[in-house]
Amino acid sequence: MMGFWDAVVRVIVGVILIWLGIEKGGAFVIAEVFGFILLFTAVIAYCPLYKLAGISSRCEECEPA
């Protein structure tokens, strides 16, 4: 699961990578793809790699019981 700040960082980094891919082109197109993946995982608040690794950035104490 993904916490709020994790999603915020993913959006910021994703937008930067997409911008680089659009502006610079070339090898930065790969960065653009990763940017879209970061944005997508931030929007759906789920990261498959976190699930595979068994980690969570969500605050357990902050969630209601």
Rank of each mutant, 00 (worst) to 15 (best):
E23Q: 13
M2E: 05
F28C: 02
G14W: 06
D6S: 08
F34T: 04
V13Q: 03
I37S: 03
F34D: 00
A53S: 12
P64C: 02
A53L: 15
F34G: 10
V13L: 14
L52T: 08
A45N: 09
E61C: 06
E23N: 09
T41Q: 14
M1H: 13
G14E: 06
A45K: 15
G21V: 01
M1E: 13
I37E: 02
D6P: 00
I30K: 03
C62T: 07
E60D: 14
P64Q: 09
V13G: 02
V33I: 15
I18G: 03
G25W: 08
I37G: 08
V13E: 04
M1P: 11
G26M: 05
F40N: 07
I12V: 15
G25P: 10
G25S: 11
I55P: 06
K51T: 10
D6V: 01
E61A: 12
G26I: 03
I16A: 12
R58T: 00
K24P: 00
A45Y: 11
F34W: 15
G14Y: 06
V29E: 07
A65N: 10
L20M: 12
K51F: 04
M2I: 13
P48N: 03
G35Q: 13
E61Y: 10
I55A: 01
A53C: 04
A45R: 15
R10I: 01
A45F: 09
K24T: 10
A27K: 10
G26C: 03
I44Y: 02
I18T: 05
D6E: 14
F40E: 08
I30V: 13
E60L: 05
Y46M: 04
V33Y: 09
V8M: 09
T41S: 06
W19G: 07
A65W: 10
V29K: 09
A53E: 01
A45S: 14
A53K: 14
I22V: 14
E63N: 11
V13F: 13
I22L: 14
I16D: 01
G35P: 11
S57G: 13
A7V: 03
E61N: 13
E60K: 11
W19R: 03
V15A: 15
I18D: 04
W19L: 11
G54N: 10
V11R: 00
I44F: 01
G35F: 05
A53D: 00
I37T: 07
I22Y: 10
G21R: 04
R58A: 12
T41I: 11
I55L: 09
G3Q: 10
R58W: 01
A7F: 02
G14P: 04
C62H: 05
K24F: 08
I44C: 05
V29W: 08
Y50T: 03
L39R: 03
F4S: 02
F36P: 00
F40I: 11
K51R: 13
I44W: 03
S57I: 03
G3P: 11
E32K: 04
Y46F: 15
V9M: 11
Y46H: 12
I18N: 05
G25H: 09
L38M: 14
M2H: 04
E23C: 02
F40W: 13
S56A: 11
G26E: 10
I18L: 08
I16V: 15
A31G: 15
A65P: 08
S57Q: 01
F4C: 01
M1Q: 09
G25E: 06
I12A: 15
L52R: 02
T41H: 00
C59S: 10
